[in-house]
Amino acid sequence: MFRFQEKRFCYSVQPAYNRSKMTRSRVSMKDVAAAAGVSLTTVSDALNDRGRLPEATRRRVRDVAEQLGFQPHRTARSLAKGRSGILMLSVSLPESTPGSAVDIEFFVQLMSAASGAALHRGWALVLAPATGSERSVPVDFDGAIVVDPRPHDALLRLADAEGKPVVTVGRDLENPDRLHVDNDHSAAVREALDLMAKAGAERPALLTSEADSSYVQDCIDGYNVWCTTRAMTPQVVTAAGGLTQGAGYEAARDFLTGPKRPDAVFTTLDSLALGVHLAAQSLGLDMPHDLQVATLSDSEAARQARPPVTAVDLNPVATGKEAVQLLIKAIEDAADTESFLVPTRMHVRGSTGTASPEAVSD
């Protein structure tokens, strides 16, 4: 949990009329009051948009504060507005997934970017438990980000019950109109399938995790549409055991030894693709000639596999930053608050046998 240290507004008192001296130290509210010829209370009311001040006085105080370079302490500003200065973030993982979000590179990059974006704007980002009840969040917060929300998510229930703004990464299937940051996963799947078909794939399969989050559902929808337009019979397999390499391995061993073995597989997460990769090698299948593999969500492990795995880069850094910016806008009641779609990029590598010159350097 982040711990705040309260500080007074006063930094170093210098004569308000001597600006050359004040530039060598931080300006206090007392300096602003002296320069504007008003009381400290008037300065506080003017800067925090409180009190019954004449508009001319309010504007003059703000102009003087800006000229002097006055910057109130961020914690004090939050308290003045009745806020905690805390944003809560949680990753809603399937119950079948062992470990935590820090085991998955996409979530690590997203959380790191979100934390940096929050601090840059003067907010603290706190990671909430991925599972549990509303009581698992014992601190006050001003808004929440929930990544890949699943039904009955505890942080969503708590935020809604307290009337706190929420932004989700991926759509909330129970409330599709909720503010969110997302990717066009359906289009990304179709692009990957086109790539593998161009390289000769005739029986591509889709390997997914549990279909209780929007990105998995979007992948299934995109895959089914692609198969329908080509009069192909879809083969959708759900991996048991959560978002793990082991789950991908076990599922792949089954369908790669079955009577209708696919010649290409797209997975909804890099860990599942790495499991397919291992299963193919254990069965003596050559990639990409016997089996092509591509995945949603790029990672260092996908890049280091041999052959390296073709992957859709979901840009988790941009996603984390956009989620924070959107949530702060919602908290501040900004007029231009609306959901945002982050563009994706395909990194073509050896697992599909169609690596481009750009992608080879990956």
Rank of each mutant, 00 (worst) to 15 (best):
T238R: 08
S297K: 12
R178H: 04
T267S: 07
H120M: 14
D172V: 00
G116H: 11
A211N: 15
A113S: 02
A130H: 13
N183C: 12
A101V: 07
A35F: 08
D140S: 12
S133Q: 10
A252L: 10
V189Q: 06
R203C: 05
L158T: 10
P149E: 00
H185G: 13
R50E: 00
S28N: 01
A231K: 09
Q304C: 15
V102C: 10
I145G: 01
G248T: 05
I104W: 15
P138A: 09
A35T: 13
V13N: 13
G163A: 08
P151C: 00
E191G: 13
R150E: 02
D313R: 11
P307W: 00
L110M: 07
M22W: 03
E332V: 08
D221K: 14
A239P: 07
A118N: 00
Q235G: 07
V38H: 08
P165I: 00
V38L: 09
T310P: 02
R60P: 05
P288H: 03
T352F: 00
L155H: 07
F255E: 06
A294E: 10
A279G: 11
E105G: 09
E55Y: 06
A247G: 06
L89K: 10
R203Q: 04
V147I: 10
E338M: 12
L155D: 12
L156P: 04
P357L: 12
L195W: 03
G82Y: 02
S96C: 11
S12F: 09
A36N: 07
F9Q: 11
V166N: 03
D254H: 14
L179C: 02
F107L: 06
Q71K: 09
D140H: 09
Y249R: 07
L127Y: 04
A355L: 06
E174M: 00
L158R: 12
L283C: 07
R230M: 01
A144R: 11
N18E: 13
T42V: 04
P204F: 08
C227D: 01
S90H: 04
L53V: 02
D160N: 12
A280L: 01
E322P: 07
P72E: 09
R58Q: 13
V225G: 04
G248S: 07
R58M: 08
S351V: 01
G242N: 06
M232G: 02
L156G: 01
A211T: 12
A239K: 00
Q304E: 11
T244Q: 04
G99S: 03
M29Q: 10
T233H: 10
I220N: 08
L256E: 11
D270K: 09
P149A: 02
V276Q: 02
A211F: 14
R59E: 15
R178S: 01
T42G: 09
